[in-house]
């Protein structure tokens, strides 16, 4: 029973790892890729840890671990552009925030901001 549970963790880790690899290619789906990658990584590590404790090897847990790492790395690389490191264009946004009279212009300003973030 105990071993089945550990195998279940390995299978779940493998599924999440595959999901992370798939999601990372889908634009903002990379966010889902990061989440799946982290969950897959945690499950695969727990599975590997339990198998190591009883002196066994698990190819499925290893595969899940590798796929989760690959999916996570690809998702992070796809998602992060340096533009998110600083508030590029936030001067304009702050100006809008400080002038409530410019409400009509906020919508178009946000469109510009969103396109610059993408």
């Amino acid at each position: 029973m105990e071993q089945q549970g550990k195998k279940g963790l390995a299978i779940a880790g493998l599924i999440f790892g595959i999901a992370a690899c798939v999601c990372c290619w889908a634009g903002y789906g990379a966010i889902a890729g990061i989440v799946c990658g982290i969950v897959g990584l945690i499950l695969s590590i727990l599975a590997k840890k339990s198998f190591t404790a009883i002196g066994q090897k698990s190819g499925m847990a290893t595969a899940g671990l590798i796929l989760s790492i690959v999916g996570l790395v690809l998702s992070v690389v796809m998602l992060i552009a340096c533009v998110i490191c600083v508030a590029a264009g936030s001067a304009a946004a702050d100006e809008i925030a400080n002038n409530p009279e410019l409400q009509n212009e906020i919508a178009s300003a946000l469109d510009q901001i969103s396109s610059s973030v993408q």
Partner: peptide, 28 residues
């Protein structure tokens, strides 16, 4: 937190700006 004023302003005028801009505001 560095954009807290923008967030407050957006939610204060959410009816005029539109809920559909929420994702863009949060993303920014």
């Amino acid at each position: 937190m560095t954009h807290i004023r923008l967030l407050i302003n957006y939610f204060a005028h959410i009816n005029e700006i539109g809920v559909d801009k929420l994702w863009e505001v949060l993303k920014y």
